[in-house]
Every structure is written in structure tokens, then in C-alpha cells.
């Protein structure tokens, strides 16, 4: 056994940064977290004894909010690309966009929850659908909110000079988290909204948008 001297404190065995690896491990763990929530929702489908269920999901509105979240993800990579090239203006602009789009998404979700509560009388106490759906999407919304808080903090820190090209890894890690929140929503939108609500009994036909009917896919 030999002893090396002058080893760099920041050397890692794999050459990968500890913090980035931590974020990936965390995301892996979060997969189990959301997987369990979505799984719970799915196995409780169609077990309701009473009250509204999937027929009240609004696909047009959720498609828009999904689009907003997807575009925030795009803004996130553009912000990262900006700071990695040292273009702080680009970074700040796109980061602000991410936060705004994220907030719009939260707004959509609050609108949806309010609609459910006011018009359909659906709260987490109403029935199984209310419990599983609202807790699942609520946890997702909480993740989005944490992401917004995180990115605002990074944005402010960048004005104080604490975030710069040299530690763009901070932005990359926050970005990984943000994209993860996005892919969770991709799954929820596909599995819970589209597949879940497809052919749900009592779905109002008027809901088919005129545009869709016009091109003959209604």
C-alpha cells in the first residue's frame, strides 16, 4: 500500500460530481415515490361507491397546462445552456420564464381543484377518486412549487454573484429536478387524464372542442 500526497480534495472515484449524483439518486427514489402514488390511484380506479370521478377531468384545459409545463422544461435547458456559455442575460431571462410558466401551471391546478370543489363537490373527503387524484396531483404541485422556489433563489443568488458560469452545476442540478417534475406530469397526463378519462361514463359530449370536431376527429 502506498500513500499519495497532494490528492485533490475534490477528486471522486467515478469522476462524477457528488451533488449531481445525489440528485440522480434522489430522482431515482422519487420515481418510487410518485410511482406508488400513481399506482395507488390506478388500483383504486372504478372502486368509487358514489360521487364524481374521471368524467369531470377537463382534457382541453389540462392539455394547455401540460403544454405550459413542457415549455417551461424547454426554457430550463435554454437557461442552462445560457449559463454554461457564460451568457448571464440568457440564463436570467429563461430562468424567469421557467418560474413564470411553473406558476401558470400551479394556477391551472388551483383552478382545476377549485372547479372540482365548487362545481362537482369533489374534495379529498368525497370519495376514493377525490382522495387518490387530489393527493397525487397535490404532491406533484408541491414538487412544482418547491422547484419554483428553488429557481427563484438561484435567480436572486445570480444577481448577488453567487451563481455564475463557474458553478453552473447548481443550475444543472435544479434543472434535473425541474425536468423530473415535468416527466412525472407527462405520465400523469397520459395515464391518469387521457387513459383514465377516455370513455368515462357521463362525459359530456359538448366538451369536444369545436376545432377538433371541425377536423373530423371529434
Amino acid at each position: 500500500m502506498q500513500y499519495l500526497s497532494g490528492i485533490d480534495d475534490h477528486r471522486t472515484s467515478t469522476g462524477l460530481d457528488n451533488r449531481k449524483m445525489l440528485m440522480w439518486a434522489f430522482l431515482g427514489s422519487d420515481v418510487m415515490f410518485f410511482g406508488t402514488l400513481i399506482g395507488t390511484h390506478l388500483i383504486y380506479r372504478n372502486r368509487n361507491l358514489s360521487g364524481p370521478q374521471e368524467e369531470i377531468l377537463s382534457i382541453p384545459i389540462t392539455t394547455i397546462s401540460t403544454f405550459v409545463l413542457l415549455m417551461s422544461s424547454l426554457a430550463m435547458v435554454l437557461a442552462l445552456a445560457g449559463i454554461q456559455r457564460g451568457n448571464m442575460g440568457q440564463f436570467r431571462f429563461w430562468t424567469a420564464i421557467v418560474c413564470i410558466f411553473g406558476s401558470i401551471f400551479i394556477g391551472f391546478q388551483m383552478f382545476e381543484f377549485t372547479e372540482f370543489a365548487v362545481h362537482y363537490g369533489l374534495t379529498p373527503r368525497t370519495n376514493l377518486f377525490g382522495s387518490t387524484f387530489l393527493v397525487m396531483t397535490g404532491f406533484h404541485g408541491t414538487h412544482v412549487a418547491v422547484g419554483i422556489l428553488w429557481l427563484w433563489s438561484i435567480l436572486f443568488a445570480s444577481y448577488k454573484g453567487k451563481i455564475h458560469q463557474g458553478n453552473s452545476l447548481q443550475v444543472e442540478i435544479a434543472g434535473l429536478y425541474w425536468h423530473f417534475v415535468d416527466i412525472v406530469w407527462i405520465v400523469i397526463f397520459g395515464v391518469v387524464y387521457l387513459i383514465g378519462a377516455y370513455g368515462a361514463e357521463g362525459r359530456a359530449l359538448e366538451e369536444v372542442p369545436h376545432a377538433a370536431r371541425a377536423v373530423g376527429i371529434g
Partner: peptide
Amino acid sequence: AIITLIEFGVFY
């Protein structure tokens, strides 16, 4: 965005 639009269409 396009895939999302297709999904939206498929739903109807």
C-alpha cells in the same frame, strides 16, 4: 408540443 397535440386529438 406536437406529440401532446396528437395525444389530445387521439382522446377524441
